[in-house]
Design a protein around this nucleic acid. Structure first.
Length: 116
DNA sequence: CACATGACTGACT
DNA sequence: AAGTCAGCCATGT
């Protein structure tokens, strides 16, 4: 995809959600990576803020594939249950240990590179 | 309008 | 290596 989804950052939310939905099954990314792709790498918090509204989107957003820069499941507390995030990841073949994605570096999916 | 908070990150101790 | 601090910016009180 050549055109950056965030070209019109007027829809920052949709942009974030779209990128998250583009994450391949069995892969994960970070808030900062998404922010960087959207041209707001200085605002990883805004990505998290957008994700906070993801659960109320009509189209499901695989928020479980988004973790922090350390691969830790920092957003697990915002899911229906405390283990939902880990369950979803496990269902995709992603191993979670101590709230962290195992082999995170290898499973990391960088939208700026993958979507260039 | 000012202060506190947050699904973050990188640098520093 | 693990904990702390300071930027970051939109939202809520």
């Amino acid at each position: 995809m050549n055109t950056k989804i965030a070209d019109q950052h007027k829809d920052f939310f949709d942009a974030v959600f779209q990128v998250v939905r583009l994450i391949p099954r069995g892969r994960v990314t970070s808030y900062g990576a998404i922010g960087a792709y959207l041209g707001a790498k200085r605002s990883a918090r805004m990505v998290g803020w957008a994700m906070n509204a993801s659960h109320r989107q009509e189209i499901p957003v695989p928020a479980h594939r988004v973790v922090n820069s350390s691969g830790m499941l920092t957003g697990k507390f915002h899911f229906e249950t405390l283990t939902a995030m880990e369950e979803h990841l496990a269902a995709e073949g992603i191993e979670v240990k101590n709230d962290k994605v195992v082999n995170f570096k290898a499973l990391f999916w960088n939208p700026t590179i993958e979507l260039e």
